[in-house]
Amino acid sequence: MPLLNLTLKVWRQENATSEGRIETYEAKEIPTSASFLEMIDIVNERLIKDGEEPIHFDHDCREGICGMCSMTINGVPHSKERGITTCQLHMRKFSDGETIWIEPFRANAFPVVKDLVTDRSSFDRIIGAGGYISVRTGSAPDAHAIQIPKADADAAFDAAACIGCGACVAACKNASAMLFVSAKASHLNHLPQGQAEKDQRVLGMVRQMDEEGFGNCTNQFECEAVCPKEISAEHIAKLNRDYLAASARDSVS
């Protein structure tokens, strides 16, 4: 099996308050079949053996569904490969002798905890501000009890694919959270169950998004290009539309 020798430029930062810096590491004899996270695991084992502090990074499922493996690879969240998370990235996408820059997701609303680990609880607070439906949680209703047009069901499902990874924020030149917020709002706003709280949801989530210190969207669609779930910026247009309508209704009620 071919092996790769790589140079890594990695962001190291002691804790939230300390200054960070780029450190250089050699990643030797990396199998092309390894995932990107496994490559870091290999480097870390050597660091531990040498008595050095391993590179800290977030991960959990390692199969593209949890959204934890946040890191920016050569300036692009989850790497320049489309529609995948870092854990789904394979080392065969790199060539021998390459230098790879690895940094945490950068946004003021995602403070660095340590090395590549960031605190993305601002997303949780946005969900808490309206990204839910208040219903009696009894037994599941019959599937055909509420009829939903196919187009709406599909749109809701596309939006619901968001795993809350934060790559959209990290890729955005303005660290805007619009793709995430619009996906979460659009998911529920497309469904009949979401109608009752629609205005409240849109106004609440956008207010929380602004309070968390995310930037403003400038319609550059960097978010859409890096999203591992390929969420469309169409949902941002819908959020803008829903926000305008909700504000108008709010002003007269």
Binding site: K9, W11, I22, T72, N74, G75, V76, K80, W101, E103, R106, A107, N108, A109, A171, C172, K173, N174, A175, S176, G213, F214, G215, N216, T218, Q220, F221, E222, A225, V226
Partner: peptide
């Protein structure tokens, strides 16, 4: 927008 986003050491633009 400028204030919301610390710089990357390696900046890249996709599209």
């Amino acid at each position: 927008n400028k204030a919301a986003r610390p710089k990357y050491a390696h900046e890249a633009t996709v599209q």
